[in-house]
Design a protein around this nucleic acid. Structure first.
Lengths: 364, 364
DNA sequence: AAAAATTTAGCAACAGCGTTGCGTAATAGG
DNA sequence: CCTATTACGCAACGCTGTTGCTAAATTTTT
């Protein structure tokens, strides 16, 4: 989402985004469905639909015959009218994906990054990967931009990588700006876990509730979707979930504290007790639910996906067993359906969201 | 904030709310100040200011002479043009406050509630308290409504108290509806800690960043202001911060888990070691900062306010000592300036926010 | 076969808000 | 007295959604 002033241009962007969100979650939709969902008048919805159709983002897809009465036109999203690319920059690998307007991953490629790679080396790898994936044809013309999800800490608003844990050449790098120059594409930069949760949000449409994506991969992190937007925090540093203390007298963590979720989980995993490691993670997840009251928890990350059912069972069981839970207090726990692509795909969807999602008002 | 469709009525409410937010944080303001802050054109700001002046919410307050050039009109908020009342319903006491449009507390009264009081008893106490506080004069006419902050769990959207810890007669009580009938006022209902953080947000204006209010009073709770709005969670249950595990092998908590912040803190406090209790709370607060990356933490609650400096020092020190903190990663820690009134005052400001704050768009 | 009922969609004008373009007002300095 | 500077107000415009109405496309009833 981009930051805008409240005027009629905002109204246009906002209501178009709502119609597109309806289009992402339902295979087809009608004017009446959108009226119900948005509160706009039928006439207003017709106008919005007409603009989106003219832009090629949606199209008519048949009619529904009600028995008596004029048939209703049925519309659908045009998924291949726009694409975005996403990159997940990890310490040793670069994963690139191509995603369509509906959030479907069309291509995915993993390539190695040199040990302790530099910004220049990353940009070269990105350029090569993009050329390989989309070439210079028609697809390039429909490419909205590139999203980059990477390790932090970073400053999302200014497009800066402040530091990157485990990488030496990455202090205060203005990655978004230099990437836009190098690649000739709009670039969006965010923390890996924030990109990840955006994948779920984009694909679920505008009704997606408060949620977290928990990533277990070279550490533990969490991305949050709260109140209809990604939660990044005051300094883009939210999500250091692995560095929350769950064992006051526990082992010293690399962050300097004692008994952090990450180090307690790591010790259990290194001892080979995956079941215990999963239960430790579950304690942290229930802590999140107590604090934030989330509707969805998505589990992801390479280290978790080596034992997916163990982790899923442990977390689901802990959520259910939380003694205070009444029947109205439910949280859906699932493994990410995007598997290893979740971060890269989410980064791509952040680009789509920025262009076709709900514009974000900038109060003051 | 109320939930609305995106049309020109929304634009009006939104931009008026921005101007009023500027008016709350600065003693006086000018058209140019609002232009800078909002992105609107000078002409648009003039129109918004004219409407607010006609409604009596702001007024001219002199001129600024720039040397050469036409003097600029200076405006100010009219704090006593509107009031709201707030109630903090605890297990044994009812605190009522009267708050003006700027968020200033004018009157405050604490009265006892009967042990295990019923909804009827509460409504009678509220009616008596309101009559005593505002009577039937001119003030009553400027009263926007009553906010109620109380213990949960509750359902904010539907105005239901689902249960109230430690009270027997409070299962699925439609408190907002019955209070509106009994008192003849619009009523807003929310969790106590959510009301509390709203007090800080209203008084700081629209630039208020991500923040938490930590309340230590018959347990530990947290209210969150995230992304420009109160965070309530999927079931209005967010903020059960005291029931997050910080000591895996610690004592069993009333909630059924082991080593919750609340029980570990309580054992330390009962052992008379307030410094240790404060340090335990600080561990929990830093956990929140790691998870949410907050700009502000406000400390409140009767049990904390018995030893305010001990708690403030412990939390401030823990935040500062967090080894991973860079100089760009700062969080302001403070005691609530509203003292014991914070919950009731916040509940009143929720009413003001609902009427004069930023309208909340209801996507779908 | 024609008319009535029902449901959907489109046209045109309207309402409201912010923007644009322009002119007026209120000063100080030359 | 004129010029320059800064601020504000008026009127028309642009854009979006709303309102009011008509037309289209069916099935059912007469």
């Amino acid at each position: 989402m981009t930051r805008v002033t409240a005027d009629v241009t905002f109204l246009r962007g906002y209501n178009q985004a709502l119609v597109m969100a309806v289009g992402r979650t339902a295979r087809t939709f009608e004017r009446a469905t959108v009226v119900e969902a948005t509160g706009l008048t039928p006439q207003a919805v017709s106008k919005v639909i007409a603009r989106l159709t003219a832009d090629g983002l949606i199209r008519p897809a048949g009619v529904r015959r009600p028995g008596i009465g004029k048939p209703a036109v049925v519309y659908e999203l045009v998924p291949d009218s726009r694409y975005a690319m996403g990159a997940h920059v990890a310490r040793r690998t670069l994963r690139l994906v191509l995603v369509d307007l509906a959030g479907t991953v069309h291509r995915s490629a993993v390539s190695p990054l040199p040990r302790d790679f530099t910004p220049e080396q990353l940009l070269d790898a990105l350029a090569a990967g993009i050329d390989t994936m989309v070439g210079i044809g028609d697809l390039r013309g429909r490419l909205t931009g590139l999203g980059i999800g990477m390790i932090g800490p970073l400053d999302h608003a200014n497009g800066l990588v402040r530091d990157a844990h485990g990488l030496r050449h990455w202090h205060d790098v203005p990655l978004r700006e230099i990437a836009e120059k190098h690649l000739g594409l709009p670039v969006h930069l965010d923390k890996d876990v924030t990109a990840g949760i955006t994948a779920e949000a984009w694909r679920h449409g505008a009704t997606f509730g408060d949620a977290a994506l928990i990533m277990v991969e070279s550490g533990i992190g969490g991305g949050f979707w709260l109140g209809g937007a990604a939660h990044r925090g005051a300094h883009t540093n939210a999500g250091e979930f692995g560095h929350t203390v769950v064992d006051l007298t526990g082992p010293r963590c690399v962050c300097g504290r004692h008994g952090c979720l990450e180090i307690v989980h790591q010790h259990a995993a290194e001892a080979g007790d995956i079941t215990h490691a999963a239960r430790v993670l579950a304690v942290g997840v229930v802590n999140l639910l107590q604090t934030l009251d989330l509707a969805h928890v998505v589990l992801a990350g390479a280290d978790l996906l080596r034992h997916p059912q163990t982790y899923l069972s442990a977390v689901t069981e802990a959520v259910r067993a939380d003694a205070r839970r009444a029947d109205w207090l439910s949280t859906r726990v699932a493994l990410s359906s995007l598997g290893g692509d979740v971060i890269a795909a989410g980064a791509a969807m952040q680009v789509l969201d920025q262009h076709y999602g709900i514009p974000e008002l900038a109060p003051i």
